[in-house]
């Protein structure tokens, strides 16, 4: 019986070479292993053997069955591979000839890109982000910042005033510094905040001036804050934003809201300098306006233009480009 079985199995295996189609292969498989297949017959035949021979016969049957299965599986792999080759050829595409998609892609404005990047840098340094209104009172924009009523910056030459409430009292903020005052009045020290925001000046638009632009203002109020903390913070920012190898320096300057005041420059790894903005130790009058005792706390503030950083990053030369809203500009970044 076993010999017959071997002969049948060999015939099936030999026949596989002629099977060229997966469906036919399936039929062959069913015939071999189905109820009427030769292996089923052999299994039934085991019962007719002497008990001592049954074990060997069973092992032999399983062995033969395994050989047939393996042969069919191997043939199936061959046939599948062949079928895939045919399919792949039929599906061939030249991806270089695909027309580009009509779906528009949204591009973030470079000012927003710079703004968010700066926020992230300062968040990483432990700062929080403060905000304030764009239309301000003259108290927040000037008085509280130690800019007296007679100061030339307050006349209508540089500052845009708004027809709201008492004449000459409401204006478009000329810097983000009013947010300093609002922050100090809102929360107790220690204060570590930056305030990015939109500011306004009575300027004619040209390559380096716009009546609307964006600034970032930093404010730190804590015990024992000194010029060294200011210099260190500027340096840490320079490294975090511009990258390793960038450093900074302070040099004396003058602003009504800080004393001592400084200008800070960033040094690029090639040794050249970039004048970035103004800074200084918060003036005691400003601290008092913010409800903070200058004998208990000290602090520093610094500010710079966001738009200029955005322009520099991408090599844009004209500030007005930022506000044309031309998609040929917007979609480059």
């Amino acid at each position: 019986m076993i010999d017959q079985l071997r002969t049948d199995a060999a015939a099936v295996i030999a026949g596989l070479g002629d099977v060229t189609n997966l469906d036919v292969l399936g039929e062959v498989e069913r015939e071999a292993f189905g109820k009427t297949g030769f292996l089923s017959g052999a299994k039934k035949g085991i019962g007719a053997l002497a008990p001592e021979d049954r074990k060997d016969a069973g092992r032999a049957i399983n062995e033969i069955r395994g050989e047939v299965e393996a042969a069919i599986a191997a043939r199936r792999t061959v046939l599948k591979d062949a079928a895939l080759i045919v399919q792949f050829e039929a599906e061939r595409l030249d991806l270089t000839e695909i027309p580009s998609s009509d779906a528009a892609v949204g591009h973030a404005h470079i000012v927003t890109q710079a703004w968010e990047e700066l926020e992230d840098v300062f968040v990483g340094m432990g700062f929080r982000i403060a905000e304030g209104p764009e239309v301000e009172t003259d108290w927040y924009n000037f008085d509280a910042l130690n800019i007296p009523p007679s100061h030339p910056a307050r006349d209508g030459f540089d500052t845009l005033y708004v027809n709201h409430g008492e004449p000459g009292k409401t204006l478009l903020r000329t810097h983000t510094s009013p947010v300093q005052i609002r922050t100090m009045l809102d929360q107790e020290p220690p204060i570590y905040t930056v305030a990015p925001g939109r500011v306004f000046r009575r300027d004619t638009a040209d390559a380096t001036h716009m009546p609307v632009f964006h600034q970032l203002e930093g404010l730190v109020i804590d015990r024992n804050i000194s010029l060294a903390d200011l210099a260190g913070t500027i340096e840490a920012f320079a490294e975090a934003y511009f990258g390793p190898g960038f450093s900074s320096r302070l040099r004396p300057n003058h602003f009504p809201f800080t004393e001592p005041s400084a200008e800070y420059d960033i040094q690029r790894p090639d040794g050249s300098w970039l004048e970035l903005g103004g800074c200084g130790m918060v003036h005691p009058n400003v601290l008092r306006a913010g409800g903070i005792d200058p004998e208990e706390y000290s602090g520093f503030a610094f500010g710079f233009g966001i738009d200029r950083l955005a322009l520099m990053k991408f090599g844009v030369e004209d500030l007005r480009e930022l506000f044309t809203n031309d998609v040929r500009f917007l979609s480059q970044f």
Partner: peptide
């Protein structure tokens, strides 16, 4: 005093806020 002593002589120190930095 700072001008004539030299701002750079104040050195650089990074203050460490007790708070975590975060967006609202």
């Amino acid at each position: 005093v700072g001008r004539h002593h030299g701002y750079e002589k104040s050195g650089k120190r990074v203050p460490r806020p007790a708070q975590n930095g975060e967006l609202t």
